[in-house]
Design a protein around this nucleic acid. Structure first.
Lengths: 154, 154
DNA sequence: CGAAAGTTTCAGGCATTATTGAAAAATGCC
DNA sequence: GGCATTTTTCAATAATGCCTGAAACTTTCG
């Protein structure tokens, strides 16, 4: 089933956003489509047709989406096809996984301390201070996020 | 002046980190080099030599670093060459500019509400809730970050 | 078990982007 | 203004990574 014009425009917009951030076009389009498709679960064949992508592309990019927990496979009662849908809580999970990038940045800062000229460490101590601040604050921020989301849908 | 082995290893490590996040190799290497070089200000020629890059590459990538305010040009007393250095506060600035990406994400969520099937809006309302939470929290988080950084270096 | 449908893998083609090198332009100094 | 040096621009080349399509593999069902 081909998309409506409105759906196409939305997929394009979302895909552009994520492509700019460094993801591949097909990856971004599949994500966008999973955000708005009806029903919310789609087979590879359906995705392939809706977005005019090859079977190989859909398989590869979908795997990557599943790997980072943006999408998940679902089986439907008495159906043989594998369906995929946007994983509930995907956006929260992205924010949670920021923690890893923060930690890696802190490690870079620490490693840099051995390399810098001793008289001018500011450049790197600054990075370290920022990373450590976020490392400290992130857990409680996430906790508040979860709380806020629960309240939002009572 | 060529780099020491230790410096080279560090540049390589930092450059790998940023390259994975989507930046070009040369861009990442220049950034890494500006983090640890001695003195902290370097001319294009020096950067070119240290990193074995062409003049054109250094010019182009450095401009991009200046544009996003990671680097800044500096003039030295009685010297004709233009020097560049890592801009103080660069890392804080990155965190500050996250605000824009959060806002854009919220816009995507809002736009999506017109496209989704009416019976199953969760996928997008969830995104909206997350984006709005961060939009609310980010300013005060940044304020605390700045406070924390000032205290750190009294 | 065999057939049919679905999925993955991967070599090759294609498109995009990065980098170079050289020429042109700009800058600062005398 | 004129010279020396630095910087930018840009066309050509190289590198990279995406996507396709076909073949191999897997799964499900009769």
């Amino acid at each position: 089933m081909p998309m409506t014009e409105q759906q196409h425009a939305y997929v394009d917009r979302v895909a552009t956003y994520f492509s700019i951030l460094g993801s591949s076009r097909a990856w971004s389009e599949i994500l966008a489509w999973l955000m708005i498709c009806d029903p919310p679960h789609q087979s590879q064949a359906q995705i392939q047709e809706s977005l005019s992508l090859s079977a190989g592309t859909v398989s590869t990019q979908l795997r990557s989406l599943v790997e980072i927990e943006f999408a998940e496979p679902v089986r439907l009662q008495g159906e043989r096809v594998q369906y995929y849908r946007l994983r509930p809580g995907a956006w929260q999970r992205v924010m949670t996984s920021e923690m890893g990038r923060i930690a890696a940045l802190k490690e870079l800062a620490i490693a840099g301390e051995d390399v810098l000229p001793a008289e001018r460490p500011e450049r790197i101590t600054e990075l370290r201070a920022v990373a450590e601040f976020f490392e400290r604050e992130w857990p409680s921020l996430l906790a508040r996020m979860n709380e806020s989301l629960e309240k939002g849908t009572p």
